[in-house]
Nucleic acid binder design. Structure first.
Ligand SMILES: [Mn+2]
Ligand SMILES: [Mn+2]
Ligand SMILES: [Mn+2]
Ligand SMILES: [Mn+2]
Lengths: 216, 216
DNA sequence: TATATTTTTTAGGTTTGCCTAAACTTTAAT
DNA sequence: ATTAAAGTTTAGGCAAACCTAAAAAATATA
């Protein structure tokens, strides 16, 4: 399997969540930063290999074999992200691009040993579940802080806005990866939230609560 | 720089040691398991990019810029080999093939962080020196046991024969990576050697001494 | 329903890296 | 010095993965 085939399968897997009855060549090529004509070609090849189901003008969906292949790449991607964040000094926003390359290394032993070395992690640094060797994957337990109710708690696993002003704000408030947040209450009129972090209480605007991801 | 260009530069660097006045397309293509015509093509391209000096029928040699590029790939290869052997449970004979893939990952930060994580190693698990960030590389201190003299000592860093019968023999004699050998004496008539390992003395045939590498 | 717009596919090209077979150059052997 | 053998380059092709432009199909609009 080529790098390109792996990237297409992985992308189809991801996009299927939002397009359950078929991922169009338009959507797929936009996601992969190629052109629709290129997506059509690749999809036809993957169909001939029995990895996807393709009907002209109807989009693609993965067959079981295609989903298994996609999940293997996703497993590698997330294990490498975990390695970069936990063992090397990479921050959560630097890991994706490098993992995008590392996910294509071919060695079953390597990925098994890496998994062991990392202590068989269940989630990557963004809070996304890591599939097991057989391709089983847990349901995503990631939410925005804005989706929580008073009394709920969550562990900060990432943000949606990487502007330095927002990151500086988080730093000032002592909110970082791993911080445990508990929702104290929600202001009805502006959806701002009072949250408890490290026994301190602080107020977050609606915009802020929508930009912080937690694992519940 | 493509994977293929990197592989050619690295190969030329290695083969130059044995062919100082020019690596022929024949030698190069044999080493890379391609055909001479393919080597000619690639060499012409590398010459146009100013990385090698090529004159038809006279072979290639690296220019300074080409040697710098080659050493960067070699640095990555050897750091990854060290990672696989020291941090994951890979044996010394399993690391090369995986490192052959990992050496092409593009990220300056990754290789800097990996170097730090490994404790800035000076040699890879085969005893070969690891170039620094600037491309400086120490002279190789690797020898075959057969090249040592009585009184010399060396640390076992690899073998030249990976047949299971030879590896079993080493295992029986308790010779492993890191074992310190001291040459006690050499039999003139058959070049067999008496060596001391862990305060035991044992006899190695000439064939055996030629198949064991040590760092001196 | 008929037409216009958008989406998708097809047709024809390009680049990279590989190949084989033929032509050419160098080296070795009479 | 000729000729034979070996090594090297050139010429012409192929597969993968991309592209643009034109044709075809599906969808939206009047
Ligand atoms: Mn990622
Ligand atoms: Mn990728
Ligand atoms: Mn190696
Ligand atoms: Mn390589």
């Amino acid at each position: 399997m080529t790098f390109s085939e792996e990237n297409y399968l992985k992308s189809i897997y991801t996009l299927q969540k939002e397009h359950p009855k078929g991922v169009s060549t338009n959507v797929l090529s936009k996601y992969l930063d190629t052109k629709p004509a290129s997506a059509t070609e690749m999809i036809k090849k993957l169909d001939e290999k029995g990895l996807v189901h393709y009907q002209p003008y109807q989009g693609v969906i993965l067959k079981d074999s295609g989903a298994v292949s996609a999940l293997k790449v996703i497993r590698k991607h997330r294990l490498w992200e975990t390695f970069l964040a936990n063992k090397l000094d990479f921050s959560w926003d630097e890991i994706h691009d490098v993992a995008e390359q590392l996910e294509h290394i071919k060695s079953d032993k390597l990925i098994r040993e890496l998994d062991k070395f990392l202590g068989y992690p269940k989630h990557d640094p963004h809070g996304d579940p890591i599939p097991d060797e057989a391709g089983n994957i847990a349901k995503l337990e990631k939410k925005r802080v804005s989706q929580l109710q008073p009394g709920d708690t969550g562990t900060c696993i990432g943000v949606n806005d990487t502007s330095s002003s927002f990151l500086q704000f988080l730093d000032q408030q002592n909110i970082r990866l791993g911080s445990v947040l508990e929702i104290v209450n929600i202001q009805e009129f502006d959806k701002s939230m009072t949250v408890r972090i490290d026994d301190r209480e602080l107020l977050l605007s609606q915009i802020a609560t929508e930009h912080i991801y937690v694992r519940i």
